[in-house]
Amino acid sequence: MASWSLFNELESLRREIDEAFRGVGFARPLATTFLSPTSARRFPLINLSEDEGQVYLEALVPGVDPNQLDVSLLRDTVTIAGERKAPGERQGELVHRKELGFGKFSRTIDLPTEIDPSRTSADFRDGVLRISMAKPEHAQPKKIEVKIS
């Protein structure tokens, strides 16, 4: 059990290092920004979790029309792409604050295991995309009965 969590820690560390080398540097976990023009982070922001049979991904894509979202799977990667359309500018307007980002985005995420693309579902609600992906049989832990001889 301890070794399992060690692997998770390493995996997490590897991802963090990857992010750091992309010029992120300052990770602020308490932020749900999306396509921010002032951030070098990659969007959308994601959380990954898993249980025995599934891998779950949560991505923050507020203000995106779900029809404009494109999720694709290839082996052990998932790609989320789409576009957040900028509102049309009106004449004579005065900008007080401009913190929201707009434009096209695409991000490919490495998953910790292979997944079975036929048993994957994606759900979009209130700006959050949730994808659950099933691990294939051979990537699932198996119980072996111990026989008493």
Partner: peptide, 16 residues
């Protein structure tokens, strides 16, 4: 609305 499923593997944001 937070729906946490499974064991967290990697986090870039927190729910609050």
């Amino acid at each position: 609305s937070v729906q946490t499923t499974g064991r967290p593997l990697y986090r870039e944001f927190e729910w609050a």
